[in-house]
Computed example of a mutant assay.
Amino acid sequence: MAEIKEPWGLSVLGAGNVSAEPRIAQVKLAVDLVAPTPKEAFEQAGAAVVRLRAVLREHGIPDSEVSGSRLALESEFAGYGAERTFHGYRCEATYTVQTEALDQLELLIEDAVQAGANRVDEVHFDVLDKPALRDEARRRAVGTARRKAEVYADACGVRLGPVVHIQDVDPESVGRRSHGGRLGGDPESDGVFAPGTVRVEAAVLLGFGLLPG
């Protein structure tokens, strides 16, 4: 049976979201190869990195938009247990490339792979002014929470008083359907996620005082 532990007023959860077309893409690439000796591994990976950097510059991507790691080396084995055998030396360098030229993204990835980035780990799309979109999503979340509170208050024959509590909520926790969680899903937060758009979300928990009707 549900129990009201703190009967001080009305508490409601509101969620909001804003969708926008992506303006930037982040591509996670890696030069990842195995060679018989450490020297060969470093030489081959180093050459691939030089080619990759050249390709990125040809695509007009400045070094400031490329974050990379140093060459890492480790022994590579194949098989398990008694069947485990030495396979060589794995050399790896990872890079995250950011670009606004979305119409050239496919060609960029193709050229990067041909240059030696033989692993594409992720392609992530995002928006440029995410803080402003997040603020708008928060305003919508507050609006959703207030509308819900007004319906509850009207149904109970009371009036909403002032806001006495504001709690920012992780929007990813809204919509989780775990029975043990503190926050349940908010059906009003479910919106159509159109392909080719980026959705920025926010959620808030509002507490209202109550006045006689």
Rank of each mutant, 00 (worst) to 15 (best):
P36G: 06
G79Y: 05
D190A: 08
L73Q: 01
E110H: 09
A15Q: 10
A30T: 11
E188V: 08
A112N: 00
L56T: 06
L205S: 02
E92Q: 14
D186K: 09
L160P: 02
L73K: 03
T197K: 14
A2N: 14
T197Y: 07
A30S: 06
R146V: 15
A35I: 12
A203P: 15
L13T: 11
L73T: 01
V123R: 02
K28Q: 15
R176W: 09
G184P: 07
E150T: 11
D103Q: 03
K130C: 01
K130D: 01
R57G: 00
V142M: 12
P7L: 00
D190S: 11
A82G: 09
L10E: 04
G88Y: 13
T99S: 02
E3D: 12
Y89M: 10
A72S: 10
S75I: 06
G46T: 01
A15C: 12
A41S: 05
G184K: 14
T197G: 01
A35V: 14
A45H: 07
R159E: 04
H87F: 14
S178I: 10
K148V: 11
L205F: 15
R90H: 03
A101M: 03
L33H: 10
A115M: 05
V55N: 00
S75D: 06
L56D: 01
G16I: 06
A47M: 13
E106R: 09
V163G: 03
A54H: 15
G213T: 02
A202P: 06
Q44S: 07
A2E: 10
E92K: 15
R199I: 12
A153S: 09
S173M: 11
G213C: 02
R134Y: 09
A72I: 08
R70E: 09
A82M: 09
V18C: 04
A117T: 13
F86I: 05
S75L: 07
E21L: 11
V127Q: 00
V198A: 00
Q98N: 04
D154S: 15
A30E: 06
G46A: 00
V204G: 02
V12R: 08
Y89D: 01
